[in-house]
Write a protein that binds this DNA or RNA. Structure first.
Lengths: 211, 211
DNA sequence: CAATTAGTGGCACAAATGTACTGACGGTGT
DNA sequence: ACACCGTCAGTACATTTGTGCCACTAATTG
């Protein structure tokens, strides 16, 4: 559901101010327009009257590994230096003892395949019954639709709709012809319900918490 | 750090098979190349010998609200209708009692602005010292670089590097000229260190857990 | 059957566009 | 002083590319 890239040459060479100015403008343009500008548009944006300086900067940016494009084809420029491609994974951080300091990029966290997954949806969690599974009140859970509830592994966290009552987030178990929905909080008793009255809307794929 | 879109014209009109074929090819091309193809590329991909049919399909796709582009400019096509825009937020799910069933899309979870944020990085959590904050062993934490540690709010969760020892995830507090790093687990004692020996590498922006 | 609409092939053209070449200016380091 | 490099202006050119037009076919609709 989530993938890692370990390629990405990781641009290191420093840029001249002109090169950096162009790169930053490119980043903002592409961010807002979702496609690359043409060389002459870059020229105007930089306040120049000739495409040659832009070509020069682009060549240098390419040599330093910040951008790339397809020769001869219009508006095919891509940024390589970082954002839009994913979030760099810098390594492991200790939550407990101390581990060695990290410095360079090991791999890249790419959320895009997740966004492409067909049918995925999200829900905001309301309540604390899953607190032992470290799903907190206010967290956003990403759910994948479930076609065949019969194939669910026992204990999978699902969003289940109980007939006529509502939807709830619980651990899913089968118990004979019944379905048992268990909270992850001793304060809540398990629900034991007939299978026909339970519709599993999706299973938990990821937990998202903004701070 | 995270944003919601409620616009999205939501294309409704149905497509002919030729239109749908083109649209799907466009989606896959843009996904892999990160820029739009030219009309003649579409022509070849569709096995045609003339650009006119493509123009026709594009016009129809535009009228039906699936795509848009900037007139006269090469490769400026954008897809409007789809799954690359975000994850639909279907509402709230109870973790405790039961709430009303959800059915239609309320808003849209867009992770893209997060990917665009300059300098963001990710770390894999190793250990259980932040367990009371519901950050589990193996979770991925997204961190935003911190320029001025002096402005950090007390209690912010940070990745802090202690001179000569390593990096750790802790609650950040100031205590006179010292810095106190507190775990979220009673089994770990707070660290009290001189401010000069602590480098805050970033503050916690989000927690990500794949299941 | 007639009318409408979408699709197709072929062609043409103007505009957009990437690229190359020349010359010049201003720094920087030798 | 000299060479080197990045920057800039101006120009030129071949290609790419969006668009328009015409005629024909196929499917759909009334």
């Amino acid at each position: 559901m989530i993938s890692f890239d370990s390629d990405s040459p990781a641009p290191q060479a420093t840029l001249t101010s002109a090169q950096q100015e162009l790169y930053e403008w490119l980043a903002s343009y592409i961010d807002s327009h979702r496609h690359s500008p043409s060389i002459r548009q870059m020229m105007e944006a930089m306040g120049l009257r000739s495409p040659a300086p832009i070509q020069s900067r682009l060549r240098h940016l390419q040599q330093k590994g910040w951008i790339t494009w397809q020769e001869g084809q219009a508006r095919t420029l891509q940024l390589l230096g970082g954002h839009l491609q994913g979030i760099p994974m810098l390594g492991t951080v200790a939550a407990g003892g101390l581990v060695e300091p990290f410095d360079d990029i090991q791999e890249r966290l790419d959320l895009q395949p997740l966004l492409d997954t067909r049918g995925l949806f999200a829900l905001t969690v309301n309540g604390d019954s899953m607190i032992a599974a470290h799903i907190d009140d206010g967290d956003v859970v990403l759910m994948e639709p479930v076609n065949e509830p019969s194939r669910l592994k026992a204990g999978t966290i699902v969003a289940a709709m109980v007939e006529g009552r509502g939807t709830t987030l619980k651990h899913f178990h089968r118990q004979g012809a019944m379905v048992r929905l268990e909270a992850a909080n001793p304060a809540y008793a398990p629900l034991l319900i007939e299978a026909e009255q339970v519709a599993v809307q999706g299973k938990l794929v990821a937990v998202w918490r903004q701070v």
